[in-house]
């Protein structure tokens, strides 16, 4: 029990827009142990990035709020920390890397400055020591000639190299948890593999836990121990990677798998989408959020919300037809022609 590093219980996130409230995340639960990697998958708009942002308490001020839920990280109640205490957690105990390394590094500071800044924010360190640390971090993330590179600006780096720099910044304070928001989406396929490899080896070395946010199931199979599938702000299915890989149960997960297979056979860059679009989160619907797009939907799906059910140990599904007594027959190629 003591090696649980992060526990999220019934997390809700709301966004206030001009006239309405968008319920972006509803009742998400996460349990993450030391050294474990959790994948959160879903389409854009499913609430996966919002969940991550909420963990860091970096939701846009005055717009995003957390009306319900509890986040316990390393024994601390994140939501009750003061702003200053939260700043001490950010970048120090929880670090984050983002999707687009082209835009997530500040273009007007050298990469060395940006790493040093991260270190010096959380540790008493002289400028000289910080510089040494920056060079060391560049070496750790596999950037050649770090002494020279440390003085360069982000625009002098390739995309993959920039993501390595982002990882160097994120890991410079030895965080207990690393949140990676689509860290490889903007990169070339070959570079993707290298970055994932790097993250894995650093995780081994530092006992870091990782939350990997992605829409790419391939990344999940490769990196994660557990996975949460999110759709329109809800967790539709969660379990260990093995269970979800071998025995996926939610029709939405099937859709994701199918589009992944289609992508692989087509050798395309983009994931072919499941037809239709998620519901408008400003107007909550009475039934299952996925009902409109679900080829298996029946009447009950649009009238009643399915409750999460633990169908086998640690494998939770929210679907009316996937219960302990009842199973749906999975059909081939029903989503994408």
């Amino acid at each position: 029990m003591s090696d649980v590093i992060l526990k999220v219980e019934n997390l809700d996130v709301h966004f206030r827009s001009s006239a309405s409230i968008v319920k972006a995340v509803n009742g998400v639960n996460i349990t993450l142990k030391k050294k474990e990697t959790l994948g959160i998958v879903g389409e854009s708009g499913s609430g996966k990035s919002v969940t991550a942002t909420a963990l860091m308490r970096l939701l846009p001020k005055g717009i995003g709020s957390i009306p319900n839920g509890k986040i316990t990280f390393n024994g601390k109640d994140i939501l009750s920390l003061s702003d200053k205490e939260m700043r001490d957690v950010r970048g120090n105990e929880i670090a984050m890397i983002f999707q687009d390394p082209m835009t997530s590094l500040n273009p007007v500071f050298t990469v060395g400055d940006q790493i040093e800044e991260a270190v010096r924010t959380h540790q008493q360190m002289s400028k000289k020591e910080a510089k040494k640390k920056a060079i060391e971090m560049l070496k750790v993330v596999g950037i050649p000639e770090p002494e020279k590179r440390v003085k360069m600006y982000p625009h002098e780096f390739s995309g993959g190299m920039r993501q390595r720099v982002m990882i160097a910044i994120a890991l410079s304070c030895n965080p207990k948890l690393l949140i990676a928001d689509e860290p490889t989406t903007a990169l070339d396929v070959t570079v993707q593999a290298q970055i994932l490899e790097l993250m894995k080896s650093l995780q081994e070395k530092n006992d870091t836990s990782i939350i990997m946010i992605t829409h790419d199931l391939g990344v999940v199979w490769e990196m994660c121990d557990k996975v949460i599938v999110m759709y329109a702000g809800n967790t539709v299915e969660s379990g260990t990677v093995e269970t979800i890989y071998e025995n996926p149960l939610h029709p939405y997960t099937w859709g994701l798998l199918e589009s992944q297979i289609t992508k692989n056979t087509l050798n395309g860059d983009k994931l072919p989408a499941i037809p239709g679009s998620p519901p408008d989160l400003r107007n909550p619907i009475p039934g299952c959020n996925f009902a409109d797009r679900c080829p298996y939907a029946k009447e009950i799906c649009s009238t009643t919300k399915p409750q999460p059910i633990e169908v086998e140990l640690g494998h939770i599904v929210s679907c009316h037809f996937q219960t302990n007594s009842n199973r749906l027959e999975r059909k081939e190629r029903v989503y994408i022609e």
Binding site: M56, L58, R87, D88, V89, R90, G91, N92, A95, M96, F98, D100, T103, S104, L105, N106, P107, V108, F109, E117, A118, T121, H122, M166, I169
Partner: peptide, 23 residues
């Protein structure tokens, strides 16, 4: 995005705005 990065580093808002954004 790099402003988000600066906040995620745990910088004070004063530095996020006054240093990272302003430059």
């Amino acid at each position: 995005d790099y402003i988000k990065t600066a906040r995620a580093k745990g910088l004070k808002e004063f530095f996020v705005i006054g240093k990272h954004a302003f430059k």
